[in-house]
Nucleic acid binder design. Structure first.
Lengths: 351, 351
DNA sequence: TTTAGCAAACGACACAAGAGAGTGCTAAAT
DNA sequence: ATTTAGCACTCTCTTGTGTCGTTTGCTAAA
């Protein structure tokens, strides 16, 4: 589909068109290319090349005699073959470091923070698809007595606090029983995945779980896991995209934006689409106005995966986003988040 | 400034104009009023009254010979004297109840949830100004050892979990010392306000705090309180206001919207403005395009206070918002949130 | 005080004309 | 074979003109 082979001068011209369009967001004419760029040919020559590029589908004209604008295929080629990766500035790295410094071990807060960071640094919309919590392994459980029949239960897995909730109880629980329950859970279920624990709680009378405090423990865990808040997606900074709404084609861009809003609000569908589109690729992947992401017509998405448990994150922005910056920011933050989560892992296993 | 006295028919006409404009969002002509409303007079009579209303500043014309549109003074009078309060439907009450059912005791999550609820039920933007956390009283502190020099510290006050964070330590802490520290904090500082505790941690060597575990305890608390995340404001549903952007005057409404975005992003200023504008009034208060709220030109804000510790919440929407629904929703949710927080209070003091 | 009737105001829309920018094409030059 | 200069053409954008329909303000009569 996309050819790597393109005459050298045409590659330069395409690069210049995309670069300039991303910068100024207006159609690029043959003369502008000559002004900006030290090409030692005439505008007519450039026009001929532009003709070829248009025939090949890399650029197009909004109307018959205007400057050229990149097509999605043009952006695609640009990202794949012409992009200069721009490193993050020291200040930006510092911003990332600071954001993660006041780490609170709560996985949802971490996800939210990361999404915010992505959105803030790139100036577009950041999103994070959390790891599959079902596959994380239980580290420990904290039970806190609020009153006789009300407990605060905190569930900490290898990547942090996965769940915490007030759990009401039918029977009273004495202080000693709590210690006992915590002890039992800790010694028996440490290192077991949440999905396995959930299965266990569904059984009526599993072997060796007959005593009263033990049954209570299972009951509690079951309560907590049964109505787990299934949050599939965290996103921050949709409002950053509002600025672009003053575009020329105000009606269509507003339509696209509302489409985007609805797309991210259906969290499950969005997550599946991203996962599906990525396939089993690792590392950064860019989607440029890709039809594999329904509802995101007119937007580009840069994603990166992170361990553990198949997490993913990324940035949603306009087709003319600054791919260099966004790609490096996304990759960098994915790496930092991974480090953060994996270090929690090690930490808990070494205790 | 605002007179209660207005001839009966003019009151009816003003009410009809505002009602209809809120519903259809287009200038209201004298004939339309006759069609909708069983007034047994001619259109010329209505026009005369409309003239008086315009002279008094309640309505205005977008251009010299168009229908009339309410002014902010008109909305103001409408809210104060002409409004039919519409109760929440059973379904909506259920939605509120469900949202608060899976209560997790974490104050920030509760605030976020409430803001979301406000935005969702009204279809506009919900916001919550949290109680002044400094004035809450410590209930208990939980210390969780992650490894020798890293602790998860959770601070629970009378209204819920106020802070939780990983706290790194210079010296190792043994398991027994943790129990000791928790015990000391619990017995000494229970019921003391956070601001008092903060002051205590700033002193070098307060009386009776000399032993090692006690100093450690203070050190830890100091760490936690010193860099408290000062979150002043939670808001959700700004995107609900995007729909109205397709207005006639697209340029100005977009400008207003970006103004709003910047206004809510300066959390401290926004919070102060709301507090200042409310003064010491209690219960629901509506601001209709009020200049006391800078950056909110062109928007209306309905607010309500809630206990304890001077919290406030509300809804931001267009001037033509459905004041009846919004006022009752805001008051209702404020009441529910208050109940939730105050019940946490009682709970912890009775333990 | 209310009503009927009428001229005037103004937005909304369509259409036309001119300016400006950029292209495609052709023929000459390298 | 490739590049260049020149020119006609196309299309947008802006401005101006005119028509149509709605709604008003005003005046005079009820």
């Amino acid at each position: 589909m996309i050819e790597i082979e393109l005459p050298e001068r045409q590659r330069l011209i395409l690069k210049e068109i995309v670069d300039r369009y991303i910068r100024l967001r207006e159609p690029v004419s043959s003369r502008m290319i000559l002004e900006d760029y030290g090409l030692r040919v005439s505008s007519a020559t450039v026009r001929n090349d532009m003709n070829d590029l248009e025939a090949a589908g890399y650029i197009e004209k909004p109307y018959a005699s205007s400057g050229r604008v990149p097509t999605t295929k043009g952006y695609r080629f640009f990202v794949d073959w012409l992009l200069d990766l721009s490193e993050l500035t020291k200040k930006e790295r510092l911003e990332v470091a600071e954001a993660y410094e006041v780490h609170c071990l709560e996985i949802r807060e971490t996800m939210r923070q990361t999404a915010f960071l992505l959105g803030n640094i790139t100036g577009y919309t950041g999103f994070v698809i959390p790891p599959q919590m079902e596959e994380t392994r239980l580290d420990r459980v904290v039970l806190l007595r609020m009153d006789a029949r009300l407990f605060l239960m905190v569930l900490i897995s290898d990547i942090g606090v996965v769940e915490h909730r007030l759990v009401p109880l039918q029977e009273d629980l004495a202080q000693e029983e709590i210690a006992q329950i915590t002890q039992i859970i800790d010694s028996t279920l440490h290192g077991v995945t949440l999905s396995a624990i959930r299965e266990l709680t569904l059984k009526e009378n599993p072997d060796g779980w007959h005593e009263r405090p033990v049954r209570q423990a299972l009951l509690l865990l079951g309560r907590l896991l049964e109505r787990r808040s299934q949050k599939h997606l965290f996103y921050e900074g949709l409002l950053n995209l509002v600025d672009d709404l003053q575009e020329v084609d105000s009606e269509r861009s507003l339509e696209q934006f509302t489409g985007l809003i609805h797309a991210v609000q259906d969290e499950a569908a969005f997550t599946d689409a991203i996962r599906g589109a990525r396939g089993d690729r690792r590392g950064p992947v860019a989607f440029v106005g890709d039809p594999a992401l329904p509802g995101l017509e007119g937007y580009s998405v840069v994603t990166c995966d992170y361990r553990p448990h198949a997490g993913a994150l990324g940035v949603i922005g306009p087709l003319w986003m600054d791919y260099g910056r966004v790609l490096s920011a996304t990759t960098y933050i994915a790496h930092r988040l991974e480090t953060l989560l994996v270090s929690s892992c090690t930490q808990s296993s070494e205790r």
